[in-house]
Simulated assay, not measured.
Amino acid sequence: MVDKSEKFNWLVRVGYFSRAILYAVLGLIALTSADQIAQGTDGIFQAIENYPAGTVILWIMVVGLLAYALFRFCSPLFDIENNGSDTKGWAKRIGHAGSGIGHLVLAYSAFQFASNSGGSSGGGAQGAASGVLSMDFGGVILGLLGVAFFVTAIFQFKKGISGEFMHRISNAAPDFTRWLGGAGYCARGVVYAVIGWSLFKAGFMSAGAEQVKTLGDAVASLAGAGLIFTVTAIGLLLFGVFSLILARYRIIPDLDSSAGVPSFRA
């Protein structure tokens, strides 16, 4: 059983709060600072580090992003979101696993800055990818991880367009939550697709570990894409605001392995 105590719920809410800071800062610097966004994920944490009480905020993000990653891993392991075990349910659960891996990487990057041990989040991800590629079938593993990110990207777009994420949010949330989430999820779909493509190329097309992109690197790679870059950056900023609302109004689901397909999917 997953620990569904009040402590677990609060950890998940801190995770959403940390995600809010991350995406709001990412969208903001993408729109306002070409030099900083060019630094990829490091630019995000450097910006936070320079804020008043920046180190304290970074430590909160370390705990929060780690908690959020573990929450996402509960989906494939324990089906905490009650997506079911049919093909559609497993596709969502695999997508959540990809999200968990991505947020673990971000938690480690935040830890590096919070502990004053330096940045290089992109280099860290590429180093890890290089280690995977050196293993037997490492390319397949990395390529399949890219596929997991593609699956996640598809479901991000689907969530944004359909608004199905509102089933997990309290009715007390502000009325504009639906539109914030719709824009934010579609923007995340773009970013996750870029990350997935980088992993797919590194794993299945022998493009090398240096092709692997983290969250900030993926956004930076869109900088020359004109309107796509601007719309994605605005969407990520809105997703930060949306995540702040989730920190208060997200319904943390109970684990019920006997429930089967959720009623709102029937």
Rank of each mutant, 00 (worst) to 15 (best):
G131M: 07
G131T: 09
V147E: 03
G98K: 03
G127H: 08
A97I: 01
A128R: 00
L104M: 12
G131A: 10
S120C: 05
V140T: 15
A97R: 00
G123D: 04
M135P: 02
G119P: 02
L142C: 09
G131W: 04
H103K: 01
G127M: 00
A107H: 02
A114F: 02
F149K: 08
L145E: 13
Q126R: 13
G127R: 00
A97N: 01
A114Q: 03
G100N: 08
Y108P: 00
S130E: 11
G146Y: 13
L145P: 00
S134E: 10
H103S: 04
G124N: 11
G146A: 12
G127L: 08
G124K: 08
S120R: 06
S109I: 13
V140Q: 10
L106A: 13
G102K: 07
F137D: 12
H96M: 14
G146W: 13
V132K: 08
L106V: 03
A114L: 00
L145A: 14
S120P: 06
F111C: 07
A129G: 15
G146H: 06
G100Y: 01
F150A: 14
S117R: 12
A114K: 00
I141M: 10
A125Y: 14
Q112S: 15
S115N: 00
G138A: 06
G127W: 03
G124I: 03
D136L: 11
F150H: 11
M135S: 15
Q112M: 07
G143E: 13
S121T: 15
G119K: 04
L144V: 14
A148Y: 04
S99H: 07
A128I: 14
I141P: 09
S99E: 10
L142P: 02
G119V: 00
V147R: 05
L106R: 04
L142K: 02
I141F: 15
A107M: 10
L144N: 07
A148D: 08
H96L: 12
V105L: 13
D136H: 12
G146T: 12
N116M: 05
G119Q: 10
S134C: 06
S130F: 04
F150W: 13
Y108T: 03
F149E: 13
F111T: 09
G131P: 01
H103E: 11
L145I: 14
S130N: 12
G127C: 07
G143C: 11
A97E: 01
A125H: 06
H103F: 14
G124A: 09
S117K: 11
S99M: 12
A114H: 01
Q126W: 01
G127Q: 03
F150I: 09
A128S: 10
A129I: 09
I101S: 07
G123C: 03
G102C: 03
M135A: 12
H96E: 15
F150D: 09
V140N: 10
G127Y: 03
F111I: 01
A114E: 04
S134K: 12
L106M: 13
V140P: 00
G102Q: 06
G131H: 05
L106F: 05
F113Q: 03
S117M: 11
Q126Y: 02
I101D: 05
S121L: 09
G123S: 05
A148F: 15
S99Y: 02
L144K: 05
H96C: 14
S134G: 14
